[in-house]
Simulated assay, not measured.
Amino acid sequence: MDEHCEVNWLVDTEQANARQGTVRWDPVHSLWNGGHLAVALAIAPFVASPGAVLTGIALTGLFLLLGHSVGFHRLLIHQSFRVSRPLFRFLIWSGTVAGMSGPFWIMRTHDLRDWAQRQAGCHDYLAHRRSMPVDAWWQIHCTLRLDHPPRFDPRNLGRDRFLHFLEKTWMAQQLPLAALLYAIGGWGFVVWGISVRIALTVHGHWFVGHLAHRRGPQSWLVKGAGVQAHDVPWAAIPTMGEAWHNNHHAFPGSARIGLYPGQSDWGYAFIRLLERTGLATDVRTPDMMIARQALLGPARAGDQRRLRHHPCFSRQNR
């Protein structure tokens, strides 16, 4: 199997078990997420202005694109393309400023879920299997402590001082941006550009993730996986293409997630722009993952042929 389709940062030890564990309150992330939501609900309406609202929306989209989708997910976690060291640091900083957590926490949390969903069975927390209110509380305010987790091994990234700096200061990274926003437009810009943005990012990320493991269109089934993914078409644009989650489960190491005509993928469009300007190399797409196709089965009749003949699987038509 192509190594870029593996879970990159976990070591699956013999004792590792995805089923047995305890959900516990996570005070750091709970207070952070709940605090920004409270500010967004209680204060934002009273300091709203056209400029503040537009700034909040624009910054939400900007950091979702550069930081969460391109920087954290496709670059840091899946290594689906390469960039220079300065650009790498800028994109990972953008992911940190998106406001969900630091880079190592994101890597560990993401890969634990990926690893667990590929097992024959896993804990309800990792499968988004509970009702929406319970899953929201679990994902936004709690963490899962597995009795026997796999080992987290960031390898060479574990020696990166810049990543450790971001991990330790991920909440404080909002302060320079907050100061700039205050200088431009006062407290209204700060509330909308920081708290509303973070609340939208955190809660939107959970909501789309919940739906993507519960209902929606499917093209592919991953053989042996206890949890399958679904697409959430209406969320394709606000998630920068991440909502084509069934495609992502099929080819997790691909920089391109929107595979079919009409599947908007702004994250991949930005990576292609970087590639055309010489700022990104080794951009990986499903045509480079032939071994991965052996692990996939079509969710509908005819999909296997439709995938193999799609232009995105032809290097010259990429």
Results as ranks from 00 to 15, higher is better:
Gln228Ala: 12
Gln228Gly: 11
Ala229Thr: 05
Ala229His: 15
Asp231Arg: 10
Asp231Trp: 07
Val232Cys: 05
Val232Asp: 04
Val232Gln: 03
Trp234Val: 15
Ala235Phe: 11
Ala235Gln: 10
Ala236His: 09
Ala236Lys: 06
Ile237His: 05
Ile237Lys: 11
Pro238Lys: 10
Thr239Met: 13
Met240Gly: 15
Met240His: 12
Gly241Ala: 10
Gly241Gln: 03
Gly241Phe: 03
Gly241His: 02
Glu242Arg: 08
Glu242Val: 12
Glu242Gly: 10
Trp244Glu: 05
His245Lys: 10
His245Tyr: 04
Asn247Arg: 06
His249Asp: 14
His249Gln: 15
His249Ser: 14
His249Glu: 14
Ala250Pro: 09
Ala250Ile: 00
Ala250Gly: 15
Ala250Ser: 12
Ala250Met: 10
Phe251Asp: 04
Pro252Ser: 09
Pro252Glu: 13
Gly253Ser: 13
Gly253Tyr: 04
Ser254Val: 11
Ser254Tyr: 03
Arg256Tyr: 00
Ile257Ser: 00
Gly258Ile: 03
Leu259Lys: 06
Tyr260Arg: 13
Pro261Leu: 02
Pro261Asp: 09
Gly262Lys: 10
Gly262Tyr: 02
Gln263Gly: 06
Gln263Thr: 04
Gln263Leu: 04
Gln263Met: 12
Ser264His: 14
Asp265Gly: 05
Asp265Ala: 09
Trp266His: 12
Trp266Met: 09
Trp266Ser: 07
Gly267Cys: 11
Phe270His: 07
Phe270Ser: 11
Phe270Gly: 01
Ile271Ser: 09
Ile271Tyr: 06
Arg272Pro: 06
Arg272Lys: 15
Arg272Trp: 12
Arg272Ser: 14
Arg272Ala: 15
Arg272Gly: 10
Leu273Arg: 11
Leu273Met: 14
Leu273Ala: 13
Leu274Gln: 08
Glu275Ile: 00
Glu275Thr: 05
Arg276Cys: 06
Arg276Ser: 07
Arg276Leu: 13
Arg276Ala: 12
Thr277Pro: 07
Thr277His: 08
Gly278Gln: 13
Gly278Lys: 04
Leu279Tyr: 00
Leu279Thr: 01
Thr281Trp: 15
Thr281Phe: 09
Thr281Ile: 04
